[in-house]
Design a protein around this nucleic acid. Structure first.
Lengths: 340, 340
DNA sequence: TAATTTCAAGAAAACGATTTCTCAAGGCCG
DNA sequence: CGGCCTTGAGAAATCGTTTTCTTGAAATTA
């Protein structure tokens, strides 16, 4: 009978011979409770294995200590790692994470955001800067804080913890140009509804244009982040003429596939063809040669986004729009361009 | 004034000129509401951008539509992929996922389980069969369903969707023995508090014992699932004498590191040394040679665990203890043992 | 010492939904 | 045509906390 399903706060109060209000105070660390009463309550709660009802608590206090994240997929380490760091940081402060994967679908993302608001999420993490206007409008109307990641452009209401994809694309181009390459190609991620993939591509092409390389002359393939797509895209690129001597891939996964193709096709990397990736995933050291790539601070983004979320509204002002550096990691997959 | 922060159910009722009860009925798909009233309610709700308060709903209805998962880490694709599938399936049914990473710490896991219960999780997914007794006791006392994954041993109260690690370890041994190898080694994951890593190792050694290979003569290294640990462990194993001609790795990540070491050390794979991995991650096709490995059905486990969770208590009886097949994927990293 | 603060703790309201009762109005049957 | 179901919808209770409002007693001040 006392073991039926679960003791409630009032049962604790009875056992501790005090009022429910006092139990609540003790359990919430309110210091205005006498030591002896406090101890009685704690003992009673332990004895009854009392577990508070989060819904009731949330309803009355209007604090859920729940945060939502909507990421494209967990099947890509770049997001999984970010979420790992995010969750770890939030958990330190007793905040739970509700996770949703949108499969890069910003309409689905809207539905998921709605559900998160309904569940009382106090903040929501989103990936990238491209979202349905109604998604952001809803979050704003319901006073739910939100943070963009993998981008550095914040909005009036939303913070950003990330990096500048366009700048990163330019850096990749700059590096290859400096190596002396003049015939370049790119394997981008799917650019539709994806400002990150688009930013990298546009930055890359823009930097080439500055070096008088016409964008129209640069073959660009596009594919979802799968090894096989990297392979097949590379095959296409290598069939174009004149053949590029350097290729920028929007992700290490695509780059790994690209290298795989080169090995199969008997193209020497980097002698015949230089390949530069993006993300610096763990797999970057598994390819032969190891991959030159741009490092994305996935773990940092997760942690810093958590810090933003955990901050008070006042502190948040200082934390919005945080641009993290992207660094080039030079390994073996890139080499000098052939002298013209 | 109507735009302040958010309309409540009673506001919808007022606008639709009906009672709150009726609004509730409409919003919950209760069919005993007249068409015209129903439409008025729906219109009113849309106009006010009404979003129900999940906490209130959960409190009164005792249904949260919240499920928890506690996995070791998201930094390992084998778990990330499982969670991806789990979340996708749950989301189809409007169930949200609260995610926790325990970093392989079963005491932390207990704390996280407690928080999940407090938040009203209706079911919890756990990894492996080894947990603190009080963790399971608490879940049972609070009537929270739970599912083990990556193992096939269920308990009275908990279901299991997974595979038999011991059997898998035996299969790896069998395969290498059948190839003619007689000097074997293993690079296992950390076995403390980890029944999966232990099961694979024990199964492997047991099968060898059956072939009259004494466990004491089999060098076994142990390390966390990191490429570098695979590399250094392989170095150790290759320094033992007699040197193994075949090594079983408890994860593809370790195996990738092992191959990396061989390449560096000038050992030919599989001519000098055969390597077999575990998991069949995407990276298994990135090593040179590609990795022979045992495929773990991560995605299936996530989906099937979700199915179990979504099932009614009655249906669940049929679904507990689901053993999925482990299949051998033969690629290039294994070859015949040298004739004795 | 009387008046005023301070303090610990209880009583009761409130959070925003769902659910259980209850009831009036129609439809059906004999 | 009268009584009995059926049906649609409202009133009020309820879920388990937290919070606000009170209150009596103790401590402080004048």
């Amino acid at each position: 009978m006392d073991n039926e399903e679960g003791a409630k706060l009032i049962d604790v109060a009875k056992l501790a011979e005090c009022s429910p209000a006092t139990v609540s105070r003790v359990l919430n660390g309110n210091p205005t409770v006498n030591r002896s009463v406090r101890e009685r309550v704690i003992r009673a709660a332990a004895e009854l294995r009392y577990v508070p009802n989060g819904s009731a608590r949330a309803l009355r206090s209007t604090r859920t200590r729940l945060v939502g994240a909507i990421i494209p997929t967990l099947d890509h380490a770049i997001y999984a790692t970010m979420v790992d760091a995010l969750q770890a940081r939030l958990a330190e402060k007793g905040v739970s994470l509700i996770l949703n994967t949108s499969t890069y679908d910003i309409d689905l993302e809207y539905e998921q955001a709605k559900l998160l608001v309904e569940r009382g999420a106090e903040a929501v993490l989103l990936v990238g800067a491209e979202h349905r206007p109604q998604t952001l409008a809803m979050l704003e109307q319901k006073r739910v804080a939100y943070v963009f990641t993998y981008t550095s452009t914040a909005t009036d209401a939303g913070a950003a913890v990330g990096f500048d994809n366009e700048k990163a694309g330019r850096a990749a181009a700059r590096y290859l140009l400096d190596l002396g390459h003049t015939r370049l190609g790119m394997i981008a991620g799917i650019t539709q509804d994806n400002d990150r993939a688009r930013g990298r591509r546009d930055g890359f092409l823009r930097e080439l244009a500055k070096a008088d390389i016409d964008a129209a002359s640069v073959p660009v393939a596009e594919g979802a982040y799968k090894i096989e797509n990297g392979r097949s895209s590379m095959k296409m690129l290598m069939a174009s003429s004149p053949r590029p001597t350097a290729v920028f891939c929007g992700s290490d996964i695509l780059a790994a596939g690209a290298i795989k193709y080169c090995v199969e096709a008997g193209l020497a990397v980097p002698k015949d063809i230089s390949i530069i990736g993006f993300d610096n995933l763990e797999i970057a050291v598994l390819t032969a040669p190891e991959l030159t790539t741009l490092e994305v601070p996935a773990r940092d983004m997760g942690r810093l986004a958590a810090d933003y979320i955990l901050a008070s509204p006042l502190q948040r002002r200082h934390l919005r729009e945080r641009e993290l550096p992207i660094s080039l990691v030079v390994r073996g997959s890139t080499g000098p361009g052939r002298a013209n």
